[in-house]
Design a protein around this nucleic acid. Sequence first.
RNA 1: GGUCUCGUGGCCGAGUGGCUAGGCUGAGCUCUGCAAAAGCUCCUACAGCGGUUCGAAUCCGCUCGAGACCUCCA
Length: 508
Amino acid sequence: MKLYEKYPIHLSNSLSGEKEKFESITPGFVGMYVCGPTVYNYVHLGNARTFLTFDTISRYFRFLEYKVRYVRNITDVGHLEGDVDEGEDKIGKKARLEQLEPMEIVKRYTEDFHSVMRQFNILPPSIEPSATGHIVEQINITKKLIDLGLAYEVNGSVYFDVKKYNQSHHYGILSGRNIEDLMESGRDLDSQDEKREKIDFALWKKASPQHIMRWPSPWGEGFPGWHIECTVMSTKYLGETFDLHGGGMDLKFPHHECEIAQATGANGKTPVKYWIHSNMLTVNGQKMSKSLGNSFLPSELFSGSHALLQKGYSPMTVRFFMLQSHYSSTLDFSNDALNAAEKGFKKISNSLSFIKKMTQPISSLKSQLSSNGLDLTNNMERMIKSCYETMSDDFNTAKLIATLFEMSSTINRIKDGVLFTDQIDTATFNDFKSTYIGMMEEVLGLKEETGGNNDLLDGTINVLINLRKKVRTDKNFALSDKIRDDLKAIGIQLKDGKDGEMSYEIES
RNA sequence: GGUCUCGUGGCCGAGUGGCUAGGCUGAGCUCUGCAAAAGCUCCUACAGCGGUUCGAAUCCGCUCGAGACCUCCA
């Protein structure tokens, strides 16, 4: 029996608006697609939260023994600024402003993106396709939509005919809108004479003479519209219908709505079984966004150089902080919350290093335990189960962390000699250990931060520790305190254990 | 204006129709030569007003407040 059968996942499907049991299209396999960044600028923290969410989700699928194909694209063309005829794509605009080749822009910000992902310990997706690598496919699907009568060409640009599509399908199915309201409430923009209706959206745009990024097409030189690349890349690598599509809440409309319309129109079937939208990161209650100018760069957060921050926080602290809330809730960003997260993370992280070293010298069987031992064993089994059940319930990382704190407390009591390993059933002990480590490192992606630790430093500190042990046995406390205080002054905290053993911790 | 979400203790944040999440902070205690760490104990909340119910913070309605989307955004 696979773990995913033992702990079936239930998730909130934004398409139905309900929590549903997850059943993959092909048993044992999961195909997921997440809208990646448009690489025209540095990724900010809000972006990172989305990728962190889906990183954790894909990690958990794998942890439950699913085989996962995770596709996350790089949008390196075609993102229009304003839905107007003069619409210019973001990469091209930035290139013009910075006087660089578009590919220089793409390269620079893609590398920044990857470096941020690495710092947060966000695993690379299985496939990371780029929009410019799929121009041919985008042209093909556009042709197909024209042939099917769902798109029309005007002056070298091609638009999706939403009204036509809506005759046989529901445009607005994902975001809960109807086309009449959209046609009424949408803002009147100038120069959209080309479009039959203002809700129509571009599949292909004609390039003006000064536009840098351009490709030949049946409709002349131009570039693809924003929504089409995701449809093309998800279909190409995951099929016409796949399990899960994710992205930030702000992409729900119009981006994902348009994806559904294009794919359904072209292939005649619903492209995605489950949609997941992660919520926004807020600063003082307001959405963090580039346009509002309240966004943080990850590097500013790590170094503490942002004006709103008192100090810097490590990538793992930030990762932990974000995982403490549910992905579907907004999460507010503040110094107090970050400080609390830093301490909390340190706590469960310490327990992680303890339990890694922890062994059970004498094995025990459940049937031979005292009643206290049995209670302890049962309690540990409850916590193990809770970890899985909690994550299988819509990826509730916040609740998982609560359980990990509980487990951490058990670990510390064993360490302090309040509880004893010989009172624990051996199978349970091993399961407890591997669950704690697995949930921390593999599922939540939290790794211990060693603070630039290395063998040389470790050896050096151990020399001092041994010296101090000697001095302490001689009751030369003045000197022993000096060793500890001096190390503390340079950021190394010594801790005296009960048994005379000493450990140290490097403070960030 | 339309659509929708949310309002939980000093702070951050889960969650459920009845069985006090968790973390941080604060107070006290224990262990330590002293620290640090850890353990134990205490601080019992769910915007307001109605309704449904044996019972609601959890369901329904209204009021107030905050936010998101409708236009580029993860």
